[in-house]
Simulated scan of single mutants.
Amino acid sequence: MTITAGESREAISSEELEVWRMLQRAQVRITRALEADLLVEHDLALASYDVLLQLSESPGRRLRMNDLADRVLLSRSGLTRLIDRLQRDGLVEREACTSDARGLFAVLTDGGAARLAEAAPTYLRGIRAQFLDVLDGDELRQCAAMLNKLFPDPCTGQDSC
């Protein structure tokens, strides 16, 4: 069976569509499992963990809100609501940008860094159980090559990013 997309006449075979659906199901199942583990063991949503992780990996443990939203794949308004909750919990702070009066930084607090450190083993264990241990070394390299083909590293071939 071939499926066409309206007037564009772009055909997708049943096999191609099934691969697409398998990719979607794998992503959803893995993230749901990670989310469940983090919530049960640390009362921390996966999106919150991702924000704390991104901030911890950034210089000065801070990122402009727009850059953070891009990194964690949230809308600006979704990130604002999440940062509100994380700030209420003492895990992040907002800081004005001195060079741009309209800009704001999200800054990881010491409490946020401690919460991230507590949750990291659970997160890493989940990645290992749900993904890494399921694939052998060759399959992981093939997966990396395929994903890099879909989403090339923008820094490749550049001196700095």
Rank of each mutant, 00 (worst) to 15 (best):
V28F: 15
V28G: 11
I30D: 01
I30M: 12
T31S: 14
R32S: 15
R32T: 10
R32Q: 15
A33V: 08
L34P: 02
E35S: 15
E35A: 14
A36S: 07
D37W: 10
D37T: 13
V40N: 11
E41K: 15
D43K: 15
L44Q: 02
L46H: 15
L46F: 15
L46M: 13
L46N: 06
A47R: 10
S48M: 02
S48I: 01
Y49R: 06
L52S: 05
L52D: 00
Q54K: 13
L55Y: 07
L55F: 08
P59M: 06
R61Y: 12
R61G: 12
R61F: 12
R62D: 04
L63C: 03
R64W: 03
R64Q: 13
N66H: 11
D67C: 03
L68M: 05
A69I: 01
D70F: 14
R71G: 11
L73K: 08
S75V: 05
S75F: 02
R76L: 09
S77W: 04
S77D: 09
G78W: 07
L79W: 06
L79C: 13
L79I: 03
R81G: 07
R81S: 11
R81F: 13
L82C: 09
L82T: 02
I83Q: 12
I83F: 07
D84Q: 07
D84F: 10
D84L: 14
L86I: 03
R88L: 11
R88H: 12
D89K: 12
V92W: 12
V92P: 11
E93G: 07
R94E: 05
E95K: 15
T98Y: 09
S99R: 08
S99T: 10
D100I: 00
D100G: 04
A101V: 10
G103I: 03
L104Q: 13
L104M: 08
F105H: 10
A106H: 02
V107Q: 09
V107Y: 13
V107L: 12
L108F: 07
L108Q: 04
T109N: 08
D110M: 09
D110T: 13
G111P: 02
G112M: 06
A114E: 14
L116C: 09
L116P: 00
E118F: 08
A119L: 10
A119E: 04
A119V: 05
A120C: 03
L124R: 10
R125G: 15
R128V: 12
A129H: 08
Q130R: 08
Q130L: 08
F131I: 02
F131T: 01
F131N: 00
L132K: 00
V134H: 11
D136L: 04
G137D: 00
G137Y: 01
E139Y: 00
E139F: 05
L140V: 04
L140M: 04
R141E: 08
C143P: 03
A144K: 04
A144F: 01
L147K: 01
N148S: 15
K149I: 03
K149H: 07
L150M: 15
L150A: 14
F151S: 08
D153Y: 07
P154E: 10
P154T: 06
